[in-house]
Amino acid sequence: MKLNYSQAMALAVRESLQQDPNVFLIGSIFAGLSAAGRAAFTPLVQDFSSRVVPAPVSELGLCGTAIGAALSGCRPLLDIGTASFAFQAWAQLANEAPNIHYMSGGRTPVPATFYLMTGIRGAGAAQHSHRIQAMLGNVPGLQLVLPATPGDAYAMLKWALLESSSPTAYISHCQLLEDEHEVDLAAPALPIGKARISREGRDLTIVAHSVMVPRALAAADRLAAEHGIEAEVIDMRSLCPLDRETMVRSVAKTGRALIPDECHLSFGAGAELAATLARDAFSYLKAPVHRVATPDVPIPFSPVLESALIVTPEKIASEALAMLNFQKS
């Protein structure tokens, strides 16, 4: 069936609510900035009104209550909303949820899911455009899933709500909410922690996650059409757990790795991927690992200024060409 990303998430929530009475929602405006998000979630919230806890503007308190509800036997889904709001909740998200299972000596699971909309959304400026996956990636104990397609949006949310017993940051991207794909709900889902080869190729590997996946695929199409270059595109799907193996195996085949990353360049998620390849794929590399990332400046408001910073298919393709022209001296 054809589903957009928001519909896929809403379907996953609906089925999870139906399957497990311990699942409930804290907050009721999931993906609310997007028309597709509102259209998908409004009927869900109406149908399950007794399973939706209305929430005031208290990110810190709400994040803690989701943790506490998980400790008392529930499987809550908390809508933190725009990922930048997670900074309001940081003490709970980074210093409570991820530590509890470890600190309890492995006795206390925390099956809570935190819904976040990450990314440069357009006109969000510096305070509403943060991509927080790299910051959270440095917090052991938190699972980070970043579905790039409606199919993964569905499967990964169901996994977080019904199967995972650890705190999960479910990070969707503002620019993906309306993307529509054919989704086979009956097909077995790729396990969490496995990256997907979204496009096969022989000339270089583009290691992408979240919104970078469709942009990398667009770049790959352009490289093929205009230059006869076949890029392999990997959708990492989750950053924790991180599938280093698939990435390394692909680079063993292509010899080149380009990492587009919407995080800022310094200490972004791409830095961890690049460091892994620099070590584990060293003997296969024909060129240095390259990154195309958001420059190390806050995100500006003006559309002209904002556009100048965006990691586009054009930038990804042109960096790929530069890499393919690399000559070892």
């Binding site: 311990n22 409930f24 806890v53 810190l60 308190g61 709400l62 994040c63 803690g64 209550t65 989701a66 943790i67 506490g68 509800a69 998980a70 400790l71 008392s72 036997g73 529930c74 809550p76 003490a91 709970q92 210093n95 409570e96 509890i100 600190m103 309890s104 006795r107 206390t108 925390v110």
Partner: peptide, 28 residues
């Protein structure tokens, strides 16, 4: 089940545990 050593850290968590007990219709 969990002890926070951050000042005030457990208060939202405790409140959420009460919400969870209520959701599960526990007498706790």
């Amino acid at each position: 089940p969990a002890t926070s050593a951050m000042v005030g850290g457990a208060l939202p968590i405790a409140t959420g545990a009460a919400l969870g007990l209520k959701h599960r219709r526990s007498p706790g």
